[in-house]
Design a protein around this nucleic acid. Structure first.
Length: 100
DNA sequence: AGTATGGCGACGA
DNA sequence: ATCGTCGCCATAC
């Protein structure tokens, strides 16, 4: 993947994520697919992990295809994501993100 | 150049 | 529901 292609990829991911409605979630793979880069789920993860902690983008609305938070249960990141999701009406049991 | 490591995903057992 | 195994692809050594 060339550098310019990557820039394009990043922009699309940001754009889609920015437009993702409150109360909704999306998977890494789905994001990748919608951006036109099917199979780039891991790259989505890589991109999101470099976002500043106070980013305006709803990074926490991105979970894996099994509807789980992709962080170790005891990590800080896990907790932060859980808080956010619950604040938007989800119930988080372990790693599972369930509708309330 | 080869290997390990991820905020992943699909499928089979 | 859970655990392996593979496939996937950029990054870091």
């Amino acid at each position: 993947m060339s550098k310019s292609t990557m820039d394009e990829f990043n922009l699309r991911i940001y754009s889609i994520l920015d437009a993702l409605p409150t109360g909704e979630t999306i998977s890494y793979g789905e994001l990748a697919k919608q951006s036109g880069f099917k199979g780039y789920a891991r790259q989505v993860g890589q991109l999101l992990k470099q976002l500043p902690k106070d980013s305006a983008l709803p990074w926490f609305r991105v979970i894996n295809s099994k509807n789980e938070i992709s962080f170790p249960i005891d990590s800080d990141a896990y907790l932060r994501q859980k808080e956010h999701l619950e604040k938007e009406g989800w119930r988080v049991v372990g790693k599972k993100v369930k509708p309330s």
